[in-house]
Design a binder for these strands. Structure first.
Length: 488
RNA sequence: GGAGGGAUGGCCGAGUGGACUAAGGCGGCGGUCUUGAAAACCGCUGUGGGCUCACACCCACCGGGGGUUCGAAUCCCUCUCCCUCCGCCA
C-alpha cells in the first residue's frame, strides 16, 4: 500500500493534485483510519513499489549536484522553472542521513552476528539491550530518509529535460527557425478559385459531420463518413507500409490504455495530468500519443547493444482532454479529443541519437513528399521545447483553405530523459557499465491534420477532392471524392 | 465473477529465525590441457547507492510496501503481478 511518511501539502507537486483513490480492500484491512479513500503520494510507482531516487533518476541528480549553475542556466533558456535549490538541499540532507544510517546498520549487523554466537544468556542480554536502542535510532533515520527521498523525488520529477547545445535560444514559438521548405504554398491564384477550409469542404462532401460528433460525444468530436473515413484508412495503411518497407521500422500494435507508471516513464506525468483521460475504476490512463506505450515497451529492460537502434512504428488513437486550449482551434478537426496518429519511435545509443533524429525527420518528410503537399521543417527554440525533448523539429503542411501551416509531425530526441524515468538501459560493451538508451519519437504523420492538408490542397472548384495518386490503389481505384461519395 | 497455486541472481532451482557472505545446476567470461576444437578440471560472475583521484571499504536489494525481532529470503500484515481450472464473453 502507499504508506509513506506524511508529507505536507507544500511538498506536493506544483499544480498537481492529489487524487482520492478508491481502495476498498485497503480501507477494510488497512491500519489507517480512512474508510474508503486513500490519498496517494505523487511518486512514480514501478511494479507497485515506490520509485526511490537511488534508482535511475540518480544520474540526473548527480549532474544537478555537480553542475547546478549549468542546470539553472539551461532552465532559464527554457523559460522553465524547477526547484533546483530545494533539490540540492534535499540531496545534501539525504546523503548526511544515509551516511549515519549505514554506519549504524553496519554496527547492528556485526553485533547481531556476535549475539547469535553467544550461549550464555547473561552475556547476551547487555548486547541485546544496546542493539535495541540502536534499532530505534535506525528506525528514526529510516523514516527521515524516506521523507527526504520522497520530497527529493517529487522535486526531481518537475525538472524538464535540458536542451541540446545545438538548440537556438528563444523565448517562444514565434522565434522557431525554419530549416527548409519544399513546395510553394498554394494560393487562390493557383487554384483559380477561393479554396475552402476543410470544415466547409468536408460537410459539403458528406464525409465530415461535426453535428453528429457533438451529438455522440460533445464538442471537439466528429464523425467521418464514406470516402472520408476510407481516405483516412488508406492514409494510415499506406503510411505504415511506407515506413515498414522503405524505412525499416517494425510495426507495433500496443494497448491504448496504460498503467500510471507508463505515464511517468514517458514524462506525461506529473506535468500533463490535467490533459489526460483517466479511468478511475481500473486506474488506467488513455494514451495521448503512441509514444507512451512505445516508450514503455522496454521499460525496466536491458537492451543488447547489437539490437540498437530499435525502430518501431504504430498507428494508435490519441486521446486528449485539451484543457489548456479551451477556445482555440474550435473549428474543424485540427484540434480534437480523439484522433489517429502514425508514430515512429526509436531506441538508440547516446552516440547515434542525433544522427537518428535527422533520419527520423527525413522519414516523416518522405510522406509529405509522396503526397505532394508543400511542407516545411521548423526547429523549436529553447522556449518551445516542451518537457521531454532535448531537441525538436516540427513538420508543417500548408493548408490553403485554413490559410495556415499545420503541424503534422513533431520529431524529438528525448535523450535519456524517458529512458531514465522508465529505466531502459543497454550495455555498451562486454565489461562496460549499464547506460541509459536515448529515445526518439516522431509523428509520421498525425491523421486529422494530414487529412486537412489533403482535402484543402487537392480540392477543385466544384467542391470535389482529387485522391492523391499514391492512395488510389487503396481506395478501390477512386480518383475523385465527390458529394455523392458517401457510399463510394 | 468463483476456486486454487505461485513470485529467490542472466536462466532453472534449494532454502521454516543466527555460517545466507543465498546451496546445486545451466549459461557466460578467463585459465590449464590440446596442432586446433570438444571434453574434463580450476577460477570468476548481478544492480543501485555512499565514501573515494582511484583502489579498497561500507549499505541496500530474494515481487512491492509496512511490521515483529538484538538479528528476517525465512514469521506477521498488506498490495501488486503471474499461472491453472470453472463461469461469462467479441
Amino acid at each position: 500500500m502507499w504508506s509513506v511518511a506524511p508529507v505536507g501539502a507544500g511538498n506536493r507537486l506544483k499544480g498537481g493534485r492529489v487524487r482520492p483513490l478508491q481502495r476498498k480492500e485497503a480501507a477494510l484491512n488497512g491500519s489507517g483510519e480512512s474508510r474508503w479513500y486513500h490519498e496517494r503520494p505523487l511518486v512514480l510507482p514501478v511494479r507497485g513499489r515506490v520509485f526511490y531516487p537511488r534508482r535511475c533518476t540518480m544520474i540526473d541528480l548527480r549532474y544537478i549536484r555537480e553542475h547546478p549553475d549549468q542546470v539553472k542556466e539551461a532552465l532559464r533558456k527554457l523559460h522553465a522553472e524547477a526547484p533546483i535549490d530545494e533539490i540540492l538541499h534535499l540531496d545534501a540532507d539525504r546523503r548526511e542521513v544515509l551516511g549515519e544510517l549505514e554506519a549504524l546498520r553496519h554496527k547492528r549487523r556485526v553485533a547481531s552476528k556476535q549475539i547469535g554466537q553467544m550461549d550464555d544468556q547473561d552475556q547476551r542480554q547487555p548486547h541485546i539491550d544496546e542493539m535495541r536502542s540502536v534499532g530505534v535510532r535506525i528506525s528514526d533515520l529510516e523514516e527521515r530518509l524516506r521523507d527526504v527521498e520522497h520530497r527529493l523525488l517529487q522535486a526531481l520529477y518537475l525538472v524538464p529535460n535540458l536542451p541540446h547545445e545545438s538548440v537556438p535560444v528563444g523565448a517562444d514559438e514565434s522565434e522557431n527557425v525554419i530549416i527548409r521548405q519544399e513546395g510553394e504554398p498554394k494560393t487562390a491564384k493557383d487554384f483559380n478559385f477561393e479554396p475552402l477550409p476543410h470544415w466547409e469542404l468536408g460537410p459539403r462532401l458528406g464525409i465530415l459531420d461535426f453535428e453528429r460528433g457533438v451529438k455522440l460525444s460533445g464538442s471537439r468530436f466528429y464523425v467521418m463518413f464514406g470516402m472520408g473515413s476510407r481516405l483516412q484508412r488508406a492514409l494510415i495503411q499506406w503510411t505504415l507500409d511506407f515506413h515498414i518497407e522503405k524505412h525499416g521500422y517494425t510495426e507495433v500494435y500496443p494497448p491504448f490504455v496504460v498503467r500510471e507508471e507508463c505515464m511517468w516513464g514517458a514524462g506525461q506525468l506529473p506535468k500533463f495530468m490535467d490533459n489526460i483521460y483517466h479511468d478511475v475504476e481500473d486506474d488506467l490512463w488513455l494514451i495521448g500519443t503512441g509514444e507512451i506505450p512505445m516508450t514503455n515497451l522496454h521499460r525496466e529492460e536491458i537492451l543488447d547493444a547489437s539490437e540498437l537502434p530499435k525502430k518501431y512504428v504504430a498507428c494508435t488513437p490519441c486521446f486528449r482532454r485539451e484543457k489548456f486550449s479551451a477556445g482555440r482551434d474550435v473549428r474543424g478537426i485540427k484540434r480534437v479529443h480523439q484522433f489517429e496518429k502514425v508514430e515512429m519511435y526509436k531506441f538508440t545509443t547516446p552516440e547515434s541519437s542525433y544522427e537518428e533524429l535527422e533520419k527520423l525527420v527525413e522519414d516523416a518528410e518522405a510522406i509529405c513528399r509522396a503526397l505532394e503537399i508543400p511542407h516545411r521543417v521548423t526547429q523549436m527554440v529553447t522556449g518551445d521545447l516542451g518537457f521531454t525533448a532535448a531537441k525538436k523539429y516540427d513538420i508543417e503542411m500548408w493548408a490553403p483553405g485554413s490559410g495556415e501551416w499545420l503541424e503534422v509531425s513533431s520529431c524529438s530526441n528525448c535523450e535519456a530523459f524517458q529512458a531514465r524515468r522508465a529505466e531502459i538501459r543497454y550495455r555498451p560493451g562486454p565489461d562496460a557499465r549499464l547506460e541509459f538508451v536515448h529515445t526518439l519519437n516522431g509523428s509520421g504523420l498525425a491523421l486529422p491534420r494530414t487529412m486537412i492538408a489533403v482535402l484543402e490542397n487537392y480540392q477543385q472548384a466544384d467542391g470535389s477532392v482529387i485522391v492523391p495518386e499514391v492512395l488510389r490503389s487503396r481506395m478501390g481505384g477512386v480518383e475523385i471524392i465527390k458529394s455523392d461519395g458517401i457510399n463510394g
